[in-house]
Amino acid sequence: MASLRELSKKKDYLTGGHRLCAGCGHSIAVRQVLLASEDPVVVGCATGCLEVSTTIYPYTAWKCSYIHNAFENVAATISGVESAYQALKRRGKVDKELKFVAFGGDGGTYDIGLQSLSGALERGHNMLYVCLDNGAYMNTGIQRSSATPKGAWTTTTPVGSVRPGKPRKRKDLTAICADHNIPYVAQASISHWKDLHAKAAKALQADGPAFLNILSPCPRGWRHPSDQTVKMAKLGVQTGFWPLYEVENGVWKVTVKVREPKPVAEWFKLQGRFKHLFAPGNEALLADLQGDVDSQLERILARCESTQE
């Protein structure tokens, strides 16, 4: 494991001058993932904040080759790039080792891009898919996705007189990807850079497809100050909302153990999107949400136990 000082000597694939909001988690995640690659990378992006902000013609913030196609198809697109690489390598037209990495937001991954992702994972391309999960369609203005936590305010699950934010639980995309039985799947957080780095390195070295789901706070959508981005990610882990684990060749393992998870309310109360939960009358909902976090953790621990080598 390289120290930060060692890592800081490596090539940064993303330059400054992109137009992501101040304090955005996405560019932190991208930098941390790509620092783990020993080989040059080729990147694909789904439509979303990262895409529109990093490649505003005639500027690109990417020092590597990059492709954007559409919203729902970055997995298929990068699988096409990787297939071209395999074909041209076989024909002796390309000889360098390259890594192929796709980035999509939660909207582009959990929702509209799920089919494309599932197909690419099943086909076994040598690619890493990274979902940057900020829990809503932030690029179009904070609409709910299937990654939005239950109870969260978004512009399509507004807090009204009869509805307290999003009524449904999140989809467990990491588990869905793990059940594709691919070599490597993990959940990571930008706050835990060392854990993220180790996971990205494993994912990039895997023989076949890999998937990383990264918690990437959004100051605009979560309604927190821009300097709190890393703290929000860290608290997401410390409350058990975002357990850090990996599934390596079918074996589930928690990589950062949180001995005594803080109440999830401590995380919620720092974010404007959950403000309404603390209004009188919502105590039962808050308890319910804590129950969801607890049962999710239990599910993960049960799978860790059942798949132990």
């Binding site: 400054g16 001058g17 101040a22 304090g23 560019s27 850079w193 100051p219």
Partner: peptide, 30 residues
Amino acid sequence: CWVFCPDTSIEVKESKMLGIDYDHCKGCGI
């Protein structure tokens, strides 16, 4: 600061911080 900067604006050379790239730093405060 370098690993958490969203704007690649911490200037580093040979593992030493040199300063801040004010051309690109957006002042997020992370």
